[in-house]
Nucleic acid binder design. Structure first.
Lengths: 149, 149
DNA sequence: CTGCCATACGTACCATGATACGGAGTCAAG
DNA sequence: CTTGACTCCGTATCATGGTACGTATGGCAG
């Protein structure tokens, strides 16, 4: 078992070196101390586990910030399972909202495509027409929420 | 119906002034020439229509870059309705892909939540177990952590 | 004429999740 | 001892869609 330098840790976790460093900079993983007598930092197995935790969380749609919260919950002996469950449930609701919005978009697109003649002059195109005219709710300057997930 | 300055155009289109300028910088709308004898730029009605076009496109999930393409199609007399339709169809497929991914995430979250006892010690939490990376094996024996993030 | 608000413009900054680069130091094999 | 691979560190860049700030000037009401 050779000493685990950053490159090996990265390969073990299936990410790039820069990704490890990025997580360190952002407090998601701890940077091991630099050996007193100069040399390379040695990464514990835990780092690899932690990185995998992060990637798993991303797979479930958690942002890095939310994953950081989960990680600090994990580190806190007072954390109850219900804390984690609450977060998963909140995320589920978030996902449901996104699904609803996307479904709406899908329906609108499908409707437009169905109505479009599919050939001929642009002025007859119902898709362009929809983009031109239909004034929806004015959508105040500050209203946002999309995020590709 | 006085001269339309940027602020009025922005209000008419339902966006902020900075948003108009942002669209100008990015070539989505054209910046009107500055009056010869000093003064404020005057925005034509078309700017307002164009901004609304952009917002409608965003509502349908098009990125600004894609909307810019739609706008230049619109400006090109050789554009056929089928060009537009093809893009809408591609976007529909994109939306379907996102829906599929989100649906998968949803299912995974729901499954985790169902399996989670909902209270008790963290080490028994199946959600944390899943994040740990034990993809087939929930419930990893034990792990110890401290370190406050 | 004097405020005051609006405009013009350039630049910097926000969040998100990385990726890339350059120069110096370190380590291990040959 | 040299070479090549790897590490360290700071900084810059990417894409996305804006928001904010500072300074100078324009235009209009009082």
């Amino acid at each position: 078992m050779s000493t685990m330098t950053i490159g090996k840790a990265a390969r073990a976790a299936g990410v790039g070196i820069e990704t490890i460093r990025f997580y360190e900079r952002n407090g998601l993983i701890e940077q091991p101390p630099k050996p007193a007598c100069g040399g390379f930092r040695v990464y514990p197995e835990d780092t690899v586990r932690r990185v995998r935790f992060i990637r798993q969380g991303q797979e479930l749609g958690f942002s890095l910030r939310q994953i950081a919260e989960l990680l600090s919950l994990k580190a806190d002996p007072a954390t109850d399972c219900s804390d984690v469950r609450r977060r998963a449930q909140a995320k589920l609701e978030e996902v449901d909202e996104k699904l609803a919005r996307l479904t709406g978009i899908r329906a609108a697109l499908e409707e437009l495509i169905a109505a479009c003649p599919g050939r001929g002059a642009l002025r007859a195109c119902s898709i362009m027409g929809a983009l031109e005219g239909a004034e929806g709710a004015p959508m105040s300057p500050r209203q946002k929420e999309e995020k590709t997930l």
